[in-house]
C-alpha cells in the first residue's frame, strides 16, 4: 500500500509540474508562421485580419502582401468567436503590438453562439494569465465542471507538444503569415447541394454583441481603422432564413456603432460557382484567389 501511495505521489508531482510548465511556457514553442506569437515578435502590423477558418481559407495572404500597402497578417482560430477575438486583440495590444488597419470576420453564426473556446490552439499561443481570463469567460457563460477544467488546463494541446518537432514543422509549412498555403480543391454543385445548413439560432448572443462593441471601442481608442468583412458563402447559405436574420442583426449593430463593413454581396464574386467552395462556408484555392483580388480593390 505504501508503494502504491508513493507511486501516486510521484505521479501527482510529475503531472502537476508538467501542467504548470505547459500552461506557463508552451506559447514559446508555437509556430513561426501562424498564431499570435509571430505578431508579438514583429510588433507592428499594418493590416491585421482577425477571424475564423473562413478568413484563413478565404484570404490569399500572398496576393494581399503584394497588393496592399505595408505588412499584412491573418490571425485565425477555428470558429473564432467575437468574445475571443476581443481577447486576442487585447492580448496583442498588451504586448505592445501596433496595428493600423483592423479587419474583423463578420460571421453571424459565431456571434449567435454562447461563448466557448472552439479551438484549443488559442491556449497554446497564450500565457497563463490569458488562459485564466478565457476560463473565467467560459465559466461565467456556461456550466463547467472537472471535465472542462481537465480538457482546458491538463489535456489541451498535449499531442502537439509531445510531437512538437514534427508537428510544428509540418503545420508551419502550411501557413505563411497566418494565411493558408494549402490549395484545397473546390466541390461540385451536387456535393454542395447535399450539405445541410447550420440550423436555427435565437438571435445574437449578448456576450458576443458586447464583445463586438468592445472591439470597436478599443479600435477607436487606439486609433485603428476597423472594418468588418463577410467572406462569401455558397449560394444556399444566402437563402437560409436564420443566416439572413442574424446577418441583418449584425449589420444593424455595426450601423449603430458607425462601423464600416464589407458584405459578400458588395464584392463581385459568383457565389453559385461550386468550384470556388470547399463546403458551404469555406472557399477553395480558386475561390480564395478570385475573392481576394476583388476584396483588395475595395479595402479602405
Amino acid at each position: 500500500m505504501k508503494r502504491i501511495l508513493r507511486l501516486l505521489l510521484i505521479t501527482g508531482i510529475l503531472v502537476t509540474a508538467i501542467v504548470i510548465l505547459k500552461n506557463n511556457f508552451a506559447y514559446k514553442l508555437t509556430g513561426t508562421s501562424y498564431g499570435m506569437q509571430p505578431i508579438i515578435k514583429e510588433g507592428y502590423i499594418k493590416n491585421l485580419f482577425i477571424g475564423s477558418s473562413m478568413f484563413r481559407q478565404g484570404l490569399d495572404i500572398n496576393y494581399m502582401e503584394g497588393n496592399l500597402e505595408g505588412s499584412s497578417y491573418i490571425l485565425t482560430y477555428n470558429g473564432n468567436q467575437p468574445v475571443l477575438m476581443l481577447m486576442e486583440l487585447e492580448y496583442l495590444l498588451d504586448y505592445g503590438v501596433r496595428i493600423e488597419n483592423l479587419y474583423m470576420d463578420l460571421y453571424p453564426y459565431t456571434a449567435a453562439a454562447p461563448p466557448w473556446i472552439s479551438d484549443n490552439k488559442i491556449l497554446l499561443d497564450t500565457n497563463l494569465a490569458m488562459k485564466i481570463k478565457i476560463w473565467d469567460m467560459i465559466s461565467e457563460n456556461n456550466t463547467v465542471g472537472i471535465k472542462e477544467f481537465y480538457d482546458f488546463f491538463v489535456s489541451a494541446n498535449n499531442d502537439y507538444l509531445l510531437t512538437y518537432p514534427i508537428s510544428n514543422t509540418l503545420i508551419s509549412n502550411t501557413f505563411y503569415r497566418g494565411g493558408s498555403t494549402l490549395k484545397p480543391e473546390g466541390s461540385t454543385r451536387k456535393e454542395l447541394d447535399a450539405l445541410q445548413g447550420f440550423g436555427t439560432r435565437e438571435g445574437l448572443n449578448e456576450a458576443q454583441v458586447g464583445a463586438i462593441k468592445a472591439v470597436i471601442a478599443l479600435a477607436k481608442e487606439k486609433d485603428m481603422n476597423i472594418t468588418y468583412i463577410e467572406t462569401p458563402k455558397y449560394a444556399t447559405m444566402f437563402s437560409d432564413d436564420t443566416y439572413l436574420i442574424l446577418k441583418k442583426d449584425m449589420v444593424q449593430l455595426l450601423d449603430s456603432m458607425e462601423t464600416s463593413y464589407i458584405l459578400a454581396e458588395d464584392i463581385p464574386f459568383d457565389c453559385k460557382e461550386a468550384s470556388y467552395f470547399q463546403d458551404l462556408i469555406h472557399l477553395s484555392f480558386d475561390g480564395r484567389q478570385a475573392y481576394t483580388q476583388e476584396l483588395v480593390g475595395v479595402l479602405p
Binding site: Y160, T163, I171
Partner: peptide
Amino acid sequence: GDNTCLAYLLTVLL
C-alpha cells in the same frame, strides 16, 4: 478533421 490530425496519430503510435 484539422491540422492537429498528424500530432494525434503520431502520439497514439508512439
